[in-house]
Design a protein around this nucleic acid. Structure first.
Lengths: 340, 340
DNA sequence: CCTGGAAACGTAACCGATAACGATTGCAGT
DNA sequence: ACTGCAATCGTTATCGGTTACGTTTCCAGG
């Protein structure tokens, strides 16, 4: 084993092999125009010296870094799942991943954080970014793929079929016999929040159940935002027999409030969430929810970004992934007592 | 807003401001030796052109990338927590974080994966790395900090006080009256696994309880490894009244097996874990465990790496963090029936 | 023996930013 | 008025690779 402390550069290899750096470069990149004998010489010199090409120098020259970025406004289990999918899609692809997440609590950090980082990164460190943020559209010199984009965005994005998912969730409650169904909405700047509310309304409409606006609470996807809303819904004289929350994080808070107020789930109250985060499988009772495979979202976003960056673009720019209703034990038919 | 498609370079700014690139560089880096008037001119040129310095070019020149790496052999909730801590420590520090995790299931990917990546990265993309892997010591041209290092490693590292933690955990069981206490060990190449077993032995010894080797199962920290071991322990004619698992992931599997075999926890069987991963708070029953704040481990590791990289090194090179026993509802006094 | 052309390889100009160096100017101290 | 130091700024080599272009080598065909 040779102890190497100073970095070995291409010209070191060239000197050792008795050729020019240009030739070494060709060998390293497998380019045409080098005799077999020379290739062998260069290869063995590389081996002996333990040469590794400088990613930085290569990036500068090629004006391509082969690094993609993941920019998230907060880092929660949602983000972690997305991250896993992204890493999977990028593994052995030649791309490296650099991540930026607002480490402040609840992502409460000033708006525009993502935009600032992105302009700094794009073109100087990353070849493209995946962003997951509830704040506005993002401009960048390099390609950007949004996960769960803002409403009305036409930029490349990946999202779940929120409309269908929410519709199915509410239909599940309707099928069980519920008629007074509360809803806790997400941050309405996001397309997902809007679609989930649409799904709620659509399901009620097609069942002939009128929408009662007082049963709708306006949250923002942060779990904490759901607590006071759930309290309001459950403390009214005529509480709903079921609550559909636009995210699992919020749904878990609803469970908490229900327990606190003496509601037994699912006997007195059914609860449905959206997302299927790992925690919702292990609570008591298990949360019925809509699975949107955040892993898959991350995976697809990364695939899409990769093809945008390499220029082999041929897929639709807005991917919608199917959802799946996961029935656990937080939903049941309403008790007769709960009916008017 | 000016539409910029071609990247704006320093010489563009220099030309616009009527100065040399050297002067622009000094302004950008806040160096000494530029008149106030010139600074204003340069600043406004930067503003107008929307110039952002190229991180790649800067890295090449300074032979410093300001990027740190996190290399993990797998990505689970453990890793996610560590990641959060690392990100927190690095936020607003000027360092960016690039992560490598083996995306293959259970990190079963071939040994040496981390070493290969590290040699590729070190000095060419990262200024240093945090590694969390059960496989051997790692060599690198740039500083490396290990989280939960292999046994006997003298390299810089951060780990929990596993000995004290495990001792406390077993003492907790002893205090409740347990005498037959099973143990499921972790991958014994890791210092943490070894110390936790030591703690188990030490606690029993000081309580005058002899160690029964047949009550010890050899796992490897992967949750799955615990399932058959738990089955063996619980299916014997004289099952232990309590099981201490060296990690929460494994402890949760013990709970699963217990449920499957008809053991009621904590009535028939007490279970204690180690780590305090988020899931262990939300299972039913809640898992009694030893908190080792993986967030904190990540945080400290990042702080340490930062100071190693910047050369302002003055702390001990092996940090040990305190642990804390978290008592939930998976532990109780042994039922009289369970006693011989 | 000469020519044409492809293959093999070297030269040098970059990429964008930094820092050593030298040159000039300004200003306070004497 | 003169010295000396510090401030100010431009020039240029350099970091490590990549690539357009030019040169040399070699061999087949004429």
């Amino acid at each position: 084993m040779i102890e190497v402390n100073a970095p070995v550069t291409m010209s070191d290899v060239a000197r050792a092999a008795g050729v020019s750096t240009a030739t070494v470069s060709r060998v390293v990149n497998g380019h045409y125009g080098v005799s077999a004998r020379t290739v062998v010489q260069v290869r063995s010199a590389i081996e002996q010296l333990g040469y590794e090409s400088s990613l930085v120098a290569t990036s500068l020259r090629r004006s391509r870094t082969n690094v993609l970025g993941l920019v998230a406004h907060s880092f929660q289990s949602y983000t972690a799942e997305v991250l896993k999918g992204v890493m999977k899609a990028l593994s052995r692809s030649g791309f490296d991943l650099i991540i930026y997440a607002n480490s402040d609590l609840y992502g409460s950090y000033s708006e525009g954080w993502e935009q600032r980082h992105l302009t700094r990164l794009s073109g100087t460190l990353t070849d493209g970014c995946i962003v997951v943020t509830p704040w506005g559209d993002i401009r960048s010199r390099t390609p950007v793929v949004a996960i769960d984009p803002v409403r009305g965005s036409t930029a490349p994005s990946v999202m779940a079929d929120n409309l269908a998912g929410a519709t199915t969730a509410v239909e599940h409650l309707l099928d069980l016999g519920h008629r007074r169904i509360g809803f806790i909405a997400g941050r309405d700047s996001l397309a997902s929040a809007w679609s989930r509310e649409e799904g709620y309304r659509a399901a009620l409409a097609s069942a002939g159940v009128p929408v009662d606006p007082t049963l709708i609470g306006r949250g923002d996807f942060n779990p904490e935002s759901a607590t006071p809303l759930a309290r309001v819904l459950l403390q009214r004289p005529d509480p709903p027999s079921a609550i559909f929350a636009a995210s699992d994080g919020m749904a878990l808070k609803v469970l908490e409030v229900a327990r606190e107020l003496g509601f037994s789930v699912p006997a007195d109250l059914s609860v449905v969430g959206f997302d299927n985060i790992p925690e919702s499988a292990s609570t008591e009772p298990g949360l019925t929810t809509v699975d949107q495979s955040m892993y898959q979202l991350g995976y697809e976003a990364a695939r899409m970004l990769k093809s945008l960056v390499t220029g082999e673009w041929d897929e639709p720019s807005q991917i919608v992934l199917p959802t799946r209703l996961v029935v656990r034990s937080s939903t049941a038919a309403p008790s007769s007592a709960a009916r008017p």
